[in-house]
Amino acid sequence: MRIRTHIAVSVDGYIASPDGLPAILTAPDFESGVSHGLPEFIAGCGAVVMGRSTFAPAVGSPHWPWPNLRVFVLTSQPLPEGTPPGVVSAADPSELLRLMREADFTGDVHLVGGQQTIQAFRDIGALDELGVVVMPILLGDGLRLTPDKGATAPLQLTGTRTFPDGSVEHRYTLVPERP
């Protein structure tokens, strides 16, 4: 089991605009769940993990975004009413990681969501692959991929591909720190 991201980011490093519009939605040919390499990425995943802010809007929506995947939520608050059975939550990322390792699924874990959840798994050394799809747009402001003054983390490029709209996917592993 590896924990991997597949997240869109503007060329200037924002995952969402100031009003919360995800960078991926700037693509004129974007199709939810279909474009920008997501089907190939999800094919290797058996679970998703996210924070409560990403999870909550899906509860009660007409289309459950994670069919056939185990769902894990990093939150210190109770899950919203209407949460489907089988969703697992924990307030501590180390505890949630333990629960994911004990769960019955095959494949990797797609880390869905924003900078806080990505950072939480980085902090415990559990982020195995940082996959970013760089969108051909400058947002100028918004929510950055990493928090302000985050720790430096060297990366090793493991793959890249280009999409018809000019977006470029880069996949990285985090280089372990030397003692």
Rank of each mutant, 00 (worst) to 15 (best):
G20R: 00
G20K: 00
L21T: 14
L21D: 01
L21H: 02
P22M: 02
P22V: 00
P22S: 05
P22I: 00
A23G: 09
A23H: 07
A23F: 06
A23N: 09
I24N: 04
I24Y: 09
L25M: 14
L25C: 10
L25F: 13
T26F: 12
T26V: 06
T26N: 12
T26Y: 11
T26S: 14
A27P: 02
A27I: 13
P28S: 15
P28Y: 12
P28Q: 13
P28M: 12
D29H: 12
D29E: 14
D29S: 14
D29N: 14
F30M: 03
F30V: 00
F30R: 02
F30C: 01
E31T: 11
E31P: 00
S32Y: 04
G33A: 10
G33P: 05
V34K: 14
V34W: 00
V34M: 05
S35F: 02
H36A: 03
H36T: 00
L38R: 10
L38Q: 09
P39Q: 07
E40H: 15
I42V: 15
I42T: 15
I42L: 15
I42N: 13
A43N: 14
G44F: 04
G44M: 06
G44A: 10
G44V: 05
C45P: 01
G46Y: 03
G46H: 06
V48F: 07
M50W: 11
M50G: 13
M50C: 15
M50F: 11
G51S: 05
G51W: 04
R52I: 14
R52V: 07
R52C: 08
R52M: 12
S53Q: 11
S53P: 00
T54I: 08
T54W: 09
T54E: 09
F55C: 06
A56D: 11
A56W: 02
A56P: 02
A56E: 14
A56K: 13
P57Y: 01
P57I: 00
P57F: 04
A58L: 03
V59M: 12
V59Y: 13
G60F: 05
G60S: 10
S61Q: 09
P62F: 00
H63G: 01
H63C: 00
H63T: 11
W64H: 13
P65M: 12
P65E: 12
W66R: 07
W66M: 09
P67E: 04
P67N: 08
N68W: 04
N68H: 14
L69V: 13
L69P: 10
R70A: 15
R70S: 15
V71D: 02
V71H: 01
F72E: 14
V73C: 08
L74T: 04
T75L: 07
S76M: 04
S76I: 03
Q77R: 15
P78Q: 05
P78H: 01
P78N: 06
P78F: 01
L79S: 06
L79D: 03
L79V: 06
P80Q: 08
P80N: 08
E81W: 01
E81Y: 03
T83C: 12
T83W: 09
T83L: 12
P84T: 02
P84R: 08
P84S: 06
P84V: 05
P85W: 00
G86T: 04
G86K: 03
V88P: 04
V88Q: 04
V88G: 05
S89N: 10
S89Q: 11
A90T: 10
A90L: 09
A90I: 07
A91G: 15
A91Y: 02
A91D: 13
D92H: 05
D92G: 03
